[in-house]
Computed example of a mutant assay.
Amino acid sequence: MLRRRADAHVWFRVGLAAAGWVGLYWANGRVWSWLLGDLLGLDLEGRIGSGVHFFLYDTIKIFLLLTGLMFVIGMLRASLDLDRARDYLAGKGLAVGLLLAVVLGVVTPFCSCSSIPLFIGFVAAGIPLSITLTFLIASPLVSEVAAIMIGDQFGWHIAGAYVLAGSAIALAIGWVFSRFALERWVEDMVFATRIAQLRAAGHVPTWTERVDAAVEESKEVFTTVWTWVLLGVGIGAAIHGWVPEDFFAEYAGPGNPFAVLVAAVAGVPLYVNGAGVVPIAEALWAKGMSLGTVMTFTMSAIALSIPQAIMLRRVLKPPLLAIFFGSVTLGLVGIGYLFNALFP
Score class of each variant (00 low, 15 high):
145 V>S: 06
57 Y>R: 12
192 A>W: 14
337 Y>T: 09
81 D>F: 01
212 D>Y: 07
251 Y>G: 13
41 G>S: 14
183 E>K: 12
167 S>D: 12
73 I>G: 01
149 M>H: 03
148 I>N: 02
30 R>G: 08
147 A>S: 14
1 M>D: 14
312 L>K: 03
333 V>H: 05
302 I>N: 00
164 L>E: 11
102 V>D: 07
126 G>P: 01
120 I>G: 04
307 P>E: 07
5 R>S: 15
55 F>A: 13
14 V>A: 14
85 A>D: 00
340 N>Y: 10
304 L>Y: 08
236 G>M: 05
244 P>K: 12
258 F>W: 15
85 A>H: 00
162 Y>T: 03
99 L>C: 07
237 A>P: 05
131 I>E: 02
198 L>H: 06
111 C>W: 00
266 A>L: 11
343 F>N: 13
334 G>H: 06
344 P>Y: 13
334 G>E: 13
307 P>D: 10
230 L>R: 10
14 V>E: 08
100 L>A: 09
55 F>P: 02
240 H>R: 13
112 S>Q: 08
155 G>K: 08
82 L>D: 02
87 D>Y: 01
75 M>N: 01
214 A>Q: 06
279 P>E: 11
119 F>N: 00
323 I>N: 10
262 V>Y: 06
73 I>K: 00
268 V>E: 09
234 G>E: 08
225 V>E: 02
319 P>F: 06
301 A>D: 12
234 G>A: 15
172 A>M: 15
128 P>M: 07
23 G>K: 11
237 A>T: 12
91 G>Y: 02
111 C>F: 01
253 G>M: 08
253 G>P: 08
210 R>T: 00
305 S>H: 03
14 V>F: 08
204 V>S: 12
330 L>P: 08
143 S>D: 06
40 L>A: 15
243 V>F: 02
136 L>Q: 04
159 A>F: 03
294 V>G: 06
182 L>F: 12
65 L>E: 14
102 V>C: 05
197 Q>E: 14
11 W>I: 10
